[in-house]
Measured scan of single mutants.
Amino acid sequence: MDALKSAGRALIRSPSLAKQSWGGGGRHRKLPENWTDTRETLLEGMLFSLKYLGMTLVEQPKGEELSAAAIKRIVATAKASGKKLQKVTLKVSPRGIILTDNLTNQLIENVSIYRISYCTADKMHDKVFAYIAQSQHNQSLECHAFLCTKRKMAQAVTLTVAQAFKVAFEFWQVSKEEKEKRDKASQEGGDVLGARQDCTPPLKSLVATGNLLDLEETAKAPLSTVSANTTNMDEVPRPQALSGSSVVWELDDGLDEAFSRLAQSRTNPQVLDTGLTAQDMHYAQCLSPVDWDKPDSSGTEQDDLFSF
């Protein structure tokens, strides 16, 4: 819950932080000083300027060897085509990944977070970031790969997607708890209302004896509580940590079903599988986004697919 609360507080303090972009060759504004600060901008989305290598189908939802083989196929196909790589912007948030063309600003792909089953910074092609997700059109699994400016960037994108998945799962947990509370309150309110109706004398007997209905007592009954809980029953509950912020979080049926399955089948359902080692994760978390744009010590960066 700490990640969720800190993310909400950060967004309320400075929503404009989320509009910064990394990996864009110096076009961005001043960047936060450390990885923790940038992680807090996830709610509205972190932007990464990358190059799209392509996509291939895979048979399993996750796995280092599986993704490595898929990336190898994608890279080989991209090299064989001889075409310049498409420059894209990857927007990562707890909602998922939005992929747009840098030149036309046209939407290429919009992947809900619950469809993503794996992401990684490839070991062999260490400047490549990739994720595996279920197609929104059918049940097939797709591996999408992107060329980053350097290994640090690939690791940073991988960690960002993993963190977005974690925050999304926490949102789901909060929403589920809130819905259970509202359902319980609604049920209790309905029981109270039913009890009051059972003990209320029939209207005919009131008229016969000349008694008047006590409207004041009726007004004191917990009807307002019942209506408050039943009027918006169809509205999706939102985490309290975000009250007053500009973010509107809505959970669709697909996300609810997917996270429910994860909660039942996995020990740590909030953790998205990645190909990063503990050492890689520690190294990337210690980086400032400013470091992502620094040239690798191995030599001059080449803006070309064939540089790796």
Rank of each mutant, 00 (worst) to 15 (best):
G23H: 10
I113R: 01
T231C: 03
K30P: 10
R73D: 13
S175K: 03
L262W: 02
S224R: 03
P269C: 02
M233L: 09
A145G: 13
V58T: 10
F169Q: 02
N102I: 08
K294Q: 01
N102M: 12
E59H: 09
Q187I: 02
E257A: 01
A10G: 14
G63R: 01
V88P: 05
K294A: 07
T77D: 14
E250M: 03
E257I: 06
S186F: 01
K123R: 11
T300Q: 10
K220E: 15
L107W: 05
A162R: 05
R39M: 03
E217H: 08
Q270M: 06
S297R: 10
N34S: 10
L103S: 07
S135I: 01
T274Q: 02
N34H: 09
R39K: 14
S112I: 12
D280A: 10
A145N: 00
D256K: 05
D101S: 14
L305M: 09
E188W: 01
N105H: 14
Q134S: 14
T209V: 10
L287Q: 10
A10F: 05
A68S: 08
L141P: 15
A3P: 08
G45W: 01
K127Y: 00
A208I: 07
R27F: 12
V236M: 07
L53W: 01
Q155H: 13
K123L: 15
Y118W: 05
T218K: 13
P32Y: 12
V290L: 03
F306E: 01
K179M: 11
D291T: 09
Q264A: 07
E177P: 15
S112D: 05
A10I: 06
E59G: 15
L206V: 14
A154M: 00
W292D: 06
R261T: 04
D304A: 05
I97D: 00
T200E: 09
D296Q: 03
E180Q: 15
N232H: 13
S140Y: 06
A162C: 04
T218M: 09
V271E: 08
M55A: 01
Y52P: 08
F171S: 15
Y118A: 02
L203C: 04
L47N: 02
T36K: 15
M233H: 09
T89Y: 09
L43P: 13
K127E: 00
Q20H: 14
E301R: 08
K166T: 15
V192D: 08
L53T: 01
C199D: 04
Q270T: 04
Y283E: 04
S245E: 07
K83N: 14
Q173M: 08
H137Y: 14
S297P: 09
A258R: 06
Q279T: 08
W22Y: 11
G96W: 09
L50E: 11
E188Q: 05
A156G: 05
S117E: 05
P295I: 09
V92Y: 01
A195Q: 14
A69G: 14
A130N: 01
N268G: 02
K123A: 14
D198Y: 05
S227E: 11
L305D: 08
K5A: 09
L85R: 00
K176L: 05
L42D: 02
A258Q: 10
A156R: 14
V248T: 11
L212Y: 11
E235T: 09
S93D: 03
I98G: 01
G26W: 11
P202V: 05
N105L: 11
V271M: 08
K51F: 01
L305P: 08
L262R: 08
A7N: 14
S67D: 00
Y131C: 00
V248N: 14
S246W: 01
E180F: 09
T36E: 10
E142P: 00
D280N: 07
S224T: 11
S135C: 11
K5E: 01
W249L: 11
A284Y: 11
R261D: 06
T231A: 12
D191P: 08
G96T: 02
T77E: 12
Y118P: 01
S297D: 05
S117H: 13
Q86L: 09
K127M: 00
Q134D: 14
L251K: 08
A80L: 15
Q187T: 05
L212G: 15
V167A: 10
Q86C: 10
I74M: 01
K19E: 07
A133I: 05
K19D: 09
T38L: 08
Y118V: 03
G244A: 08
L42G: 07
T38I: 15
F129N: 01
D37I: 07
L57G: 10
R115D: 04
H125N: 00
E180V: 14
S140E: 10
K184P: 14
R29Q: 04
L103V: 12
T225Y: 05
Y118H: 05
C119M: 01
C143Y: 00
Q173L: 13
A80N: 11
